[in-house]
């Protein structure tokens, strides 16, 4: 064991590496810090020859002005509904399909799986014009369903869950459950889901974040003025007659905050998810 760990032992980082890393982290955090600084100052600090670099005491004033000038709460609610629903549906539908592809025999399986893999990279947002027409015809324009429906499940999720199920669930376990009289839906619920719980929750988190940050499609079918999502409402603050920097940055800060909190709470899982995705991809 000891021998192995020395074999795996990486280089010991010198102070140079630590300095470089520290600078890097500073660079990645500075824009966020600066957002906070402007958001917490009043607008009078803008236009000085040195930009403000120290937080002020107006954060909550500015927040309440954001709430007054755009419908942030409705947007927040919409974003939550969209992100949560897509996260849940992606987990359910991806693990089901992944289970079928990984463990079940049925005619056309390989062909269908091949189709899934082939669609992973298809940039579906290029079909946006007909998609928009379809959504309007269905009477879903300006509803959260318009945003949710196209992302209920993704090829990436199916493919990822297939891998996870293939690796983590032994065939014997599936067989045993079936001999026990479980139907497939039962096997999925009792064996598959618990077996890939951690990967599935990373998938859920990723879907949640992607849905939360999505902009192009919501801008078209759920634009601000019809409720909007946090992102589309945020984009409103950026220009036009809203000419107040503190307001803009407060909005940006508010839009980022929920995901930052989520990230701080689940950083380890998210990091491992990104790294796992790399190996699988």
């Amino acid at each position: 064991m000891a021998a192995k760990s020395t074999a795996r032992a990486e280089r010991r980082p010198g102070p140079l590496v630590y300095t470089a890393m520290a600078l890097l982290v500073l660079a990645s955090l500075f824009p966020l810090y600066w957002t906070f600084v402007v958001a917490s100052n009043d607008n009078s600090v803008i236009g000085q020859s040195t930009p403000p670099l120290v937080p002020g005491g107006h954060l909550f004033d500015n927040f309440s002005r954001v709430f007054d000038s755009v419908e942030f709460w409705i947007a927040m609610k919409n974003s939550l509904i969209i992100s949560t629903t897509t996260a849940v549906s992606n987990v359910v539908l991806s693990t089901m399909a992944g289970f079928a592809f990984a463990k079940l025999r049925f005619r056309g399986r390989n062909l269908l799986l091949g189709t899934v893999v082939a669609t992973v990279m298809v940039p579906t947002q290029l079909g946006i014009v007909p998609l928009y027409m379809m959504i309007t015809k269905m009477g879903l324009f300006a509803s959260v369903s318009a945003v949710i429906l196209p992302s209920l499940v993704s090829a990436f999720g199916v493919f990822w869950m297939r891998q996870a199920i293939d690796e983590n669930i032994p065939d014997e376990l599936v067989e045993a459950a079936r001999v026990d009289g479980c139907r497939l839906i039962g096997v999925w619920w009792h064996v598959v889901l618990p077996g890939v719980r951690s990967t599935a929750s990373v998938l859920a988190m990723f879907v949640f974040m992607t849905a939360w940050n999505d902009f192009f499609w919501p801008l078209i079918v759920l634009p601000p003025g019809t409720g909007g999502t946090v992102q589309t409402v945020l984009s409103q603050l950026a220009a036009g007659y809203f000419t107040d920097y503190s307001l803009i940055m407060s909005g940006a800060f508010l839009g980022v905050l929920p995901l930052l909190v989520l990230f701080v709470a689940f950083a380890r899982q998210i990091v491992s998810g990104v790294m796992a995705g790399a190996v699988k991809g």
Partner: peptide, 26 residues
């Protein structure tokens, strides 16, 4: 009563899509 404020051009552009879609307008 709730007031919704948008940028000048997008406000009008969105209105025409809202009218066409039959939904979403104030």
């Amino acid at each position: 009563v709730k007031e919704k404020v948008a940028q000048f051009d997008p406000h009008h552009q969105q209105l025409s899509t809202q009218l066409a879609a039959g939904a979403g307008a104030a």
